[in-house]
Nucleic acid binder design. Structure first.
Lengths: 229, 229
DNA sequence: CGGCAGTTTGATCCCGGTCAAAATATGTGG
DNA sequence: CCACATATTTTGACCGGGATCAAACTGCCG
């Protein structure tokens, strides 16, 4: 196993209040692992034996319904912790985490969480801030789902994605991991047909450009207006 | 201001790991206040100067949309903390808290949260467990909203309500605070007309009995089946 | 008793789901 | 490098759940 350069991690909010020395100690206890696109990092209901830090790529958090449908709860961008049920008093993972692209993770045994939280200033604080953000995001999701039409939900979902994991390209801002119509429909509670129709329409109007598994937002401003109608 | 009997609070999970002495100290720093049905305890966006413990009654947490619609995020039953943005790194309240019935609260200045969290074993742990539960609830809300039909969402919402704040009465289990068709529609992302139609239908079939601002579930089992179809 | 808040019921309409089928990419093995 | 299998996207036709509009009804409070 390679040693990881602690300088890469120091800029992360999670470690911002720590000494280089401390980050080194934390890293030395971590396991490093790569996941291929589509593979699961952990499964809903499984014993939460480890918690993870996403070094690179994007994690898609999904839930399965009784009848086998799957819906996307959130996407996690690089730099964030996930699978931290321990921090919230859980012993099992509340959802399944899938690699939305090639993914690089660090992970630690759940047991060390308490030690980290008490020993390292800001570690718990930053984590809970992140939890707060996710709570907020879920909250707006609920509001959206109850009040917004499909067109607006999809527009907002795309904006959220480029906000979290957008990459500037020539034609606009691209979603930095492969994403299908089906994925978008699972994020917004619709069907892939509806998503396809809308993307086609938007492409005709110059709002987006979309290829297979790829979406580029050309005109975020216009999309934002659509999302608020 | 009356002294509050600490024996009332000792059974709460929040205080379960504390000495009587410590609970007394915590209580002595609290302000006690009553809110009438419909009045706001705090408003979305306002500076989070205090956090609250709900002694009696039910709190309805609502969010307002851009166009003035309001949707209900969750209900908080007696015994729980709320308005604890500080624990999640927030400085403002993320939603509005309204008294769904007559309500009795204790509250403390936000500043003392850190002290409580570090000083009193289990205080932080219990709080975060609760946050975890709310995260879970919001998560299932999102799943529900994306996959369930209106009938199922309403059935589940009612079941959740009697689960959290039900009161056994002669004909079945009653929701222990006044609740209108409109309230239910705001919880489920529908319209009061649809809720009314369904409740009428269910009443005809003996599943519920509903009066003005009052709903009694006569047959939770049957409703549970409906909610899973 | 008047007025308001809450509820019921009917009629109509349309968004978006469902079913179906074809078109277009991508990958794989020979 | 081609042929075939599979994954993804597109487009069309149809239909139904539930929103919307409208109006009457009921219980409650001052």
């Amino acid at each position: 196993m390679h040693k990881i350069d602690e300088n890469l991690l120091l800029p992360l909010p999670l470690f911002s209040k720590l000494e280089k020395e401390q980050v080194r100690t934390i890293l030395d206890q971590a396991s490093r692992r790569r996941f291929e696109t589509g593979s699961a990092v952990f499964h809903e209901g499984a014993l939460a034996e480890r918690f993870f830090l996403l070094l690179d790529g994007t994690i898609r958090v999904i839930k399965l319904t009784a009848d086998g449908e799957q819906i996307t709860s959130i996407h996690i961008p690089a730099g964030q912790l996930f699978g931290i049920g321990k921090a919230l008093g859980r012993t099992t993972y509340p959802a399944t985490a899938v690699a939305a692209s090639e993914v690089l993770t660090l992970s630690w045994p759940t047991d060390v969480w308490d030690k980290f939280a008490t020993k390292y200033t800001g570690f718990a604080t930053e984590t809970y801030k992140m939890v707060g953000d996710r709570l907020g995001e879920l909250n707006t999701r609920v509001v959206d789902m109850s009040t917004q039409h499909v067109e607006q939900r999809i527009a907002r979902a795309l904006l959220r994605l480029i906000d979290q994991s957008g990459r500037q390209v020539e034609e606009g801002i691209e979603i930095s991991f492969p994403i299908t119509r089906k994925d978008v429909s699972e994020m917004t509670g619709t069907t892939l047909q509806t998503v396809s129709r809308l993307l086609s329409l938007w492409e005709k109007n110059g709002l987006v450009i979309s290829k297979r598994k790829k979406i580029i937002i050309c005109n975020p401003h216009q999309l934002n207006i659509l999302g608020k109608m």
